[in-house]
């Protein structure tokens, strides 16, 4: 479903990703952990080309993103993304936030987009907020709307970049609950998070990144209980 081959990414002379090789199978939930500045966000953003790729290849369902002929907008329809800072559109209501892309990109008629949007809001528990503006929502509610907005494009893959890091602690649970539900329904997910509980419970595989390389990857139980690399051990001893 996702295949990353020898991925390299530099900002100027700063090489942030050095030779990353990762595959994600359909319906798999892969959790990416690692210290700040290790390149987790950059890695995730390369998967939908929010960052240009310096070297190597990223394949999404067999389509090479680095191929100049690839229409990146088509690929992005299949890859939803949820940001740490939510990035809701403040000039639009919740339901308009959700309807916008399906209507403009997929040419879904307004009524259909609205019905679908309301259904998604029901799913994330915010049906009553359809006509509210993002500014009036709590952080947890915003993030659930952001998830619904991404899902409205009916993506096959969802990318999450620290979706709960900007939230007050009491709101983390409600967002993770939605993500767990999504995982249960078989969504393919790549999640950057510091929530080790989520990684253990929902993750099929955990990737530990440091200094722009994948240091270690394994099923959560193994990685957390039996880390092989010293760097993994020292990182886990700090966060667990």
């Amino acid at each position: 479903m996702i295949k990353v081959e020898k991925l390299k990414k530099s900002f100027g002379s700063n090489e942030v990703l050095k030779d990353i090789n990762v595959t994600v199978k359909p319906q798999e939930v892969v959790v990416v952990i690692g210290p700040s500045g290790s390149g987790k966000s950059t890695f995730l953003r390369c998967l939908n080309m929010l960052e240009s790729i310096t070297g190597g290849h990223v394949y999404i369902e067999g389509i090479d993103l680095t191929d100049k002929k690839t229409d990146i907008n088509k690929v992005r329809i299949e890859v939803g993304m949820v940001f740490q800072q939510f990035n809701l559109f403040p000039h639009k209501t919740v339901i308009e936030n959700i309807m916008l892309a399906p209507m403009k990109v997929r040419n879904v008629p307004a009524e259909k987009a609205k019905a679908k949007g309301l259904e998604l809001l029901r799913k994330v528990g915010l049906e009553d907020k359809a006509e509210a503006y993002p500014d009036s929502l709590s952080g947890g509610q915003k993030q659930r709307v952001a998830i619904a907005r991404a899902l409205a494009m009916e993506p096959k893959i969802m990318l999450f970049d620290e979706p709960t890091s900007a939230l007050d602690p009491e709101m983390v649970g409600e967002v993770l609950e939605v993500m767990k539900q999504l995982a249960k329904e078989g969504m393919t997910m790549v999640v950057v998070t510091h929530e080790m509980g989520f990684a253990k419970e929902v993750g099929d595989r955990v990737i530990f990144m440091d200094g722009g390389v994948v240091v270690e990857e394994n099923v959560p139980k193994e990685l957390f209980e039996n880390p092989k690399e010293d760097r993994t051990k020292s990182f886990l001893s700090k966060v667990l």
Partner: peptide, 18 residues
């Protein structure tokens, strides 16, 4: 306008003009 707005729009499949 915050960079995240453009990124969110593009991540939803909109092109630059949209």
């Amino acid at each position: 306008i915050d960079r995240g707005q453009m990124e969110a729009a593009r991540s939803l499949g909109m092109n630059h003009v949209q």
